[in-house]
């Protein structure tokens, strides 16, 4: 009983790590722009594909061993995926912001950007699935009936490390302070000599880079890639961010791990077809009880 509980807990932490890493991108962009970037789930998908091409290239064309390919693939995937996020901001969102249009149109644009990423992928690489190469030899450790792989541990450790680093960035660095300042009062930020656009670009770069990291880890854990893989997980991560309190980094993690835990626990006791129904019902009840999310505070609309 205890072993099975621990086993489920580890699975929940690993599964929740993906949600948490993706939810961060939603929550950070919302924090600075009050924009829900619905293309973010597909940026995660693009991240997984970028990881696929980078890893395949490093293994086959360069001939690196798996561990070396992984060490190089992490920064390369994060960098290239952040370029995708920054490009979306430059091409699609910034022109709308310049025109001062209502946020609704920016959200619709974000939805379309997501669909464009999915179908550009489909058009370019076809409908066949891609098998992600093995970068890490899987090792299973079994302690007192609980088994865990090195990859699962790495995923959980990465998510926790990202949390600590991000907390530090947001509270201690200038760019982090500027992000929080924009969330308070965007109007006053240029008065500090700070370009609002620079902070927005940094936010997209950071959020998309983390989606790329999630894409790489996800592809290593579930090595089948297809163009629609980001859609449902993106929606779920967005809901996780809202339940945690969108705009708050701690909320993204809490919401992500909570959703992971609910899903794993449902499958442990019910048929797996019940998973999403029960998981989303639980989240809906949390929102009915606390509409602004667990860490959220009601914010007043600013002009």
């Amino acid at each position: 009983m205890l072993a099975s509980l621990l086993q489920n807990l580890i699975n929940a932490l690993q599964w929740g790590s993906f949600y948490a890493l993706i939810a961060l991108g939603y929550t950070m962009v919302y924090g600075v722009l009050t924009l829900i970037n619905f293309a973010h789930g597909d940026v995660f998908m693009v991240g997984a594909y970028i990881a696929f091409f980078v890893a395949s290239f490093l293994l086959a064309a360069v001939g690196l061993p798996g561990w070396a390919a992984l060490v190089l693939a992490i920064p390369l995937t994060m960098l290239l995926t952040s370029l995708v996020g920054v490009s979306l901001e430059r091409i699609a969102y910034r022109p709308l912001r310049r025109k001062g249009v209502d946020r609704l149109y920016v959200v619709i644009t974000a939805l379309m950007c997501g669909l464009i990423l999915e179908h550009a992928n489909l058009a370019t690489f076809g409908a066949s699935r891609k098998a992600f190469p093995t970068l890490l030899d899987e090792q299973v450790y079994t302690v007192a009936g609980v088994s865990v792989t090195n990859l699962k541990l790495a995923v959980i450790a990465t998510a926790l490390l990202v949390f600590l680093v991000l907390q530090r960035i947001v509270t201690k660095t200038r760019i982090g302070m500027a992000m929080r300042a924009i969330a308070c009062d965007r109007f006053a930020v240029p008065l500090m000599g700070i370009s609002v656009d620079t902070v927005i670009v940094a936010t997209f770069a950071l959020g998309s880079g983390l989606a790329g990291l999630a894409g790489l880890l996800f592809a290593m854990s579930y090595p089948i890639l297809e163009p629609y893989m980001g859609a449902l997980i993106g929606w779920k991560a967005f809901i996780a961010a809202v339940v945690g309190g969108i705009g708050d980094i701690r909320g993204a993690f809490l919401g992500g791990f909570l959703l992971g835990a609910v899903e794993i626990m449902v499958v442990a006791f019910f048929p797996s077809t019940f998973r999403d129904l029960i998981a989303f019902s639980v989240l809906m009840l949390i929102l009915v009880w606390k509409p602004t999310g667990l860490f959220g505070v009601a914010r007043t609309t600013k002009i």
Partner: peptide, 26 residues
């Protein structure tokens, strides 16, 4: 520099962070 009407300080930031932020671009 401009001190805007209604002050428009960054309420969620500490006093020191407000001051530090203003040195960002220096």
């Amino acid at each position: 520099a401009l001190v805007p009407e209604g002050r428009r300080i960054f309420g969620k930031l500490t006093v020191e962070e407000n001051l530090k932020l203003a040195t960002y671009a220096r």
